Computed example of a mutant assay.
Amino acid sequence: MTTITTLFSKINDSQLGSDRVKSMASELARIIVFPLLGVLVFLLLWSVAAQNINTSLGKFPGPAAVVEQFGSLYDEHVREREKADAFYERQEKRNAARVAKDPDYVSKVRDYTGKETFLDQIVTSLVTVISGFLLAAIIAIPLGIAVGLSRPLNSAVNPIVQIFKPVSPLAWLPLVTMVVSAVYDTPDPAVPKSFLNSMITVTLCCLWPMVINTSVGVASIDSDLVNVSKVLRLPPLTHVRKIVLPASIPMIFTGMRLSFGVAWMVLIAAEMLAQNPGLGKFVWDEFQNGSSDSLSRIMAAVLVIGFIGFLLDRGMLQIQRYVSWDKASADR
C-alpha cells in the first residue's frame, strides 16, 4: 500500500513539474519569442517594401541603411563635441595669455555656437516634454481633486474643460508664441523663448486628460471609504492624503500616461511647425535638405521618437507600480 501511494505521489509530482515547465515555456514565448517574431516579420516586410518604393531622393531606406545612419549620426556628435572642446581650449589659452600680459583683464568665456547634433536634439526634446508635463501635473492634479470633491466646482469647471478639450494643442502654438514674445521680453533671457513656447504648448495638451481622469477617479471613490473618513472626522487635507489620493491613483496615472503620450506627439509636431530646437526640427531640416541620406536619417529619427515614447510610457507605469497600493491596476 505504501509503495502504491509513493508511486502516485511521484506521478503527481512529475505532472506538477511538467505543468510548471509548460507554464514557464508559455510565459517565455509570450515575453520573448512572439515579440521577437513580430519584430522580424516587420523588418522583413520593411525590407521588401523599401526595395519597391522609389522617391525623388532615391529608394526608400531599408533597415540596413537606417542602422548605418545611426552610426553616422553618432560620429557627427563625437566630431561636434571635439570641435567644442577645441574651441574652449583655444579660448582658455587666449584668456590665460591676456591675463599674463594684463593682470587686471577680466576674461570672458563665450559659449560654443556650433550646430546641435542628433543626440543634443534628443536631450532638448526630452527636457522640454518632461518640463511641460510636470508643470501640467502640478496644475491639473490638484484641480482635478478639487473638482472631484466639489460638485459646484465641477459644474463651474466642466464647461471650460469641454470647450477646450477638443482644441488641437497646435492651435495654441501661435497664441503661445505671441504671448511669450510680449511678456518674456528681455535682452538676455535665462531660458530660450523657443523652449518656453514648446513647453507651454506641451502643458496645454497635458492638462485636460489629467484633470478629467483625476476628477473622475476622485468622484468614484468607494462610499465606504468616504464614510470611514467621516466617522474618523479626518481633516480635509488628511482626508485627501489618506483616502482620496490612494483610492484614485489608478485613474490619476491613467490620465498621466495618456497625457505623456499625447505630449510627446504634440511636441514633435510643434518643433516641426515652429522650428524650435528638438527632434521635430531635425526631421524637418532633413526633409528640407533633400540629400541622398535624408530619408534614412528621417527614418532613424522616427524610430527614436517611437522608442522614446515607449520608454516614457513604461517609465510612468513603473512609477504607478511603485506608488499604487493596487499593483494589479498597473499591469496594463
Rank of each mutant, 00 (worst) to 15 (best):
I4H: 12
T6K: 14
S9Y: 08
S9H: 08
S9P: 00
S14T: 12
Q15C: 03
Q15P: 00
K22M: 13
S23M: 10
L36C: 10
L37A: 10
F42N: 03
S47Q: 13
I53Y: 08
N54M: 05
N54G: 05
T55M: 07
T55S: 07
P61S: 10
V66E: 04
G71Y: 06
G71P: 03
H77Q: 08
R81S: 12
A86P: 00
Y88W: 07
R90I: 05
R90D: 14
V99C: 06
A100Q: 14
A100C: 06
Y105K: 03
Y105R: 03
E116Q: 13
T117H: 07
F118R: 01
D120N: 14
I139D: 01
I139R: 01
A140M: 04
L149T: 04
P152L: 09
P159K: 06
I160L: 15
Q162S: 09
I163L: 15
K165E: 12
A171H: 04
L173V: 13
V179M: 13
V179S: 10
P192V: 02
T203N: 06
T203K: 01
C206D: 05
G217S: 09
V218Y: 04
A219W: 04
I221R: 05
D224F: 06
V226K: 09
V226R: 10
V228I: 14
R233P: 00
H239P: 00
K242G: 03
I249N: 04
I249P: 01
M256F: 03
R257C: 03
R257K: 15
L258Q: 13
V262A: 11
I268E: 00
A269M: 13
L273K: 09
Q275Y: 14
P277Y: 11
G280Y: 00
K281T: 07
V283L: 14
S292E: 15
V302I: 15
L303K: 04
F307P: 01
Q320I: 02
S324A: 15
D326I: 02
A328G: 06
